[in-house]
Design a protein around this nucleic acid. Sequence first.
DNA 1: TTGTAAGCGTTATCAG
DNA 2: CTGATAACGCTTACAA
Lengths: 321, 321
Amino acid sequence: MANIRDLAREADVSVTTVSRVLNDHPYVAEDKRQAVRDAIIKLGYIRNQTAVHLSTGQTKTIGVMLPYVDHPYHAAILHGIAQSAFEEGYRFLTWQTNYIASHEQTVLQALAQREVDGLIVVSHSLPVDEILPYEQYGPIVFCEHHEEVSSVYINHYSAFQSGLKALQSFGHTHIGICLGRPDSTNSRARKRAYQDTVPLADAEWTYQHALTIEDGADIARKWSNQAYRPTALLTASDHVAAGIILELRKQGYRVPEDLAVIGFDGSELAVVLNLTTVAVPYETIGRQAFSVAISDNWRQHPQSEIPTTLLSGLTAIKVLD
Amino acid sequence: MANIRDLAREADVSVTTVSRVLNDHPYVAEDKRQAVRDAIIKLGYIRNQTAVHLSTGQTKTIGVMLPYVDHPYHAAILHGIAQSAFEEGYRFLTWQTNYIASHEQTVLQALAQREVDGLIVVSHSLPVDEILPYEQYGPIVFCEHHEEVSSVYINHYSAFQSGLKALQSFGHTHIGICLGRPDSTNSRARKRAYQDTVPLADAEWTYQHALTIEDGADIARKWSNQAYRPTALLTASDHVAAGIILELRKQGYRVPEDLAVIGFDGSELAVVLNLTTVAVPYETIGRQAFSVAISDNWRQHPQSEIPTTLLSGLTAIKVLD
DNA sequence: TTGTAAGCGTTATCAG
DNA sequence: CTGATAACGCTTACAA
């Protein structure tokens, strides 16, 4: 493998000049520039990026910490990160942590070891104050609301509230909710919104661990076995909503007559199901998080709240009028 | 930032000794080893991986080329890659190409520039013989069947055929199919299976560009407007199948009485829909591809065919008996 | 068991 | 405009 020194020898110039040509610096005589270009072709030279990284002290790579690459919600954020990274000439390393603390530590370690210039934490289980110290090694951006760190987030309290109010506007008072991980930052905000907004808020109507379509189906079965049931459900994701709806229909229930359901995400699943849903611009979150990660004002811990919108479906909400 | 030389000075040993301690080499006196450990703590030393990469000539990173990180099929493969990479102490860089040739070139370039030790091509649009030359820079593994390169794949011909035969076993003769990208390697194999297996194979019953749920809904609308219709459909993915089924139901059709539908993927969507589907172990594909990428027999272009299984749902297939 | 010193392949300072 | 040369931070012969 030819290196920059071979190139210099071949073109009969110094390595400095070669480097200048390689990096499109001005102040290189045209004939020398051409000589270098010829040498590059002749020797089939290709720059070794690792050496560039060591020399410049940057990797032009950011890291992404997320629990599962194949969950729609996270994958959508990843999509946004991927788009921005490509546009900015960056690459990104993804760590799938499965919410295991030791795996998350590995990711933080990678930042400290300078494998990445910055980190985007899509979701985590480690407490924030165990992550915070690693900021000395580079920017860390959260896709969740935390005042003490840079964050790009949606307001789960108000987003959830908008869904609840939509149900109330159709006359529903017996409203239940679905939550993902019981003690996540997001779930806590959602639970608060529920308790603040729905007078009849009931622990029996709070369905936990709702993440996938099958979780939704489980919830539908649980609901159908309850004596005292909600008439409407605000779910944690469109996938959960889909699981609920499909399972209910399978059992002969009608949606929304027997149970009104609202989704969360604004995915194409909601469109096809005519599901009313809280639309979240995940790609935007990913893009914003990326841009903070490579900006230089991250030390001020910028907070950027991304707005959500209630997307009205046709069938899955109306009832009780 | 303390470096290995500061450490050597602090512990009063040579950098070689420090390096040995860092890499758990034997032949270091216990007292010196301890001295180095103390110095590491005292100075808050953290190894610079970039320097390790330059020195060793390896990045312990593999690259992944795929069109979209947020499509279920590709995300599932990514999941497998992520699991294996973590277990093996590797990282992975993902490039989302959107099937744009110039983006795919960027990925190949990254291999040439030694940013990654190897490459996994999940799906591509560039012709194989434009990719092949880059093998001189490192292993390239395809998740698609190509004799000329290393590949980990499923046999789309037989997988599709198993779905078609399942429909035939229920008496269907008027069978249509859905395909993704019209000219992909996979679509071609599927089309061959269709023509070889279904005597009444019809171009009007070959629905192209079927990738998402909404594509499925489009196909359902197209189907309902046709005068001469198939009675059964083998789809390109469970998502497409779901779109078809949900749209058909919305229009008042019954599945499978009016149209029998078989899915492809074996996703949880299929489970909830009671959909018969061709189950594909995507995670296994990702894991296998990764293991080939870091093995040293990749030069022999190993071929590994991953078996699929027909997963019988309850409702979406029975009819015409 | 330990250390010296030569890489790895760039970039960047500084003097011409 | 050009070129020595010293970093960047680590690994690894080779010698002792």
